[in-house]
Design a protein around this nucleic acid. Sequence first.
DNA 1: CTAGTGTGTTACCGGCGGTAACTTCTGTCA
DNA 2: TGACAGAAGTTACCGCCGGTAACACACTAG
Lengths: 201, 201
Amino acid sequence: MATTRPDPSTPRRGPRTRTELLDAAERVVLRDGPAASMNAIAAEAGITKPILYRHFGDKAGLYVALADRHIETLLDRLREALTRPGTRRQRTEAAIDAWLRLVEGNPALYRFLVHRGQAEEPEVRDRVAVFQRRLGDALAAGIAAELGLPEQQWPRAQAWAHGIVGMVQAASDWWLDEQPFDRTALTRHLADLLDGAYARA
Amino acid sequence: MATTRPDPSTPRRGPRTRTELLDAAERVVLRDGPAASMNAIAAEAGITKPILYRHFGDKAGLYVALADRHIETLLDRLREALTRPGTRRQRTEAAIDAWLRLVEGNPALYRFLVHRGQAEEPEVRDRVAVFQRRLGDALAAGIAAELGLPEQQWPRAQAWAHGIVGMVQAASDWWLDEQPFDRTALTRHLADLLDGAYARA
DNA sequence: CTAGTGTGTTACCGGCGGTAACTTCTGTCA
DNA sequence: TGACAGAAGTTACCGCCGGTAACACACTAG
């Protein structure tokens, strides 16, 4: 057993938990951006690099673990919004707003989650871009359910879903830079667009 | 004057033109992806690194120069599609299809143009992500013109435009991986979405 | 013949991701 | 108690990257 910790003495020996390491990594990433070095993360955690590698394999592994902590939370919020009672318009707005709350509330985390993709190495990119993919798949399921689509129409729902995810994400990026109106207005504009306001205008 | 070139002898001395260097860089980037190293590019051009740096300053400069060669072409095609006579739906489809033709015809180039963004360094990212920004701005102008919007409604058009660019881009990425139907079908599905097919379904 | 300019090279810098090999601590069992 | 297994953690390194300083060679102008 290693649970006994009789002497929490000066420099602190003994195993760091995975969670502690991820906390440190998160602090550094939110402070320095996704380009944070493994050395910096190790230093923040009070250890050295090889320990990080023993825990996470490589940098991509660490980043995936870091993203996983938040992806499930966001996915849950989106699923809740998409199955909420009310009108379809209300569900659309609720889902968009759940996303935008993350963007507004923690822009650095948001940027890490969606933008650390394309990390040069295709291997890293593929493992890490799973985020957008999972969002799209979840939304595709929501759309298929909302519209009661037969199975042969799923590809259409998928095309829409992945397109919508990209739409909200790109609009968020632009909005983060410009902020020409508040979050609820952006929610309304995007919901309008999905409602066909452009075609009708 | 150094224009005289009397002896094009064995290993080829004398200045490489910027175009030659960009050609070589393009070959390497399309072969190895955006992670191509400056050494590899220099080798492909038959020279060494410092020459590249004299021409382009740094890696971001080279990539921006590389992207610029193609961005204007694509922007021109999009502008042409957006001002074409016919129905709004036809213009929408023409613009989406112009984009998708690039995606389908040269996926590696497409990925380089839109995905080499977020290259770790914020500085690189900011200079290079200009691509999506310019697309969005161009589309916003097109939308404002199409709808005859008054100036105080421009932010709304911008939100839509940047969202639409992200939508088409994300749908393209998904489609490149899956290819569940052909290009024209994707064009139709995305145009349907902008037409409000989701709200009506 | 010399001076200067542009073209190119070699050789280096610091820092990155990643790893091998060693040390130090801790708990177990005779 | 004491030898020992093994985990925890460190130092020191590898190859490669982007980027640069300093030097070598050709050519032209005076």
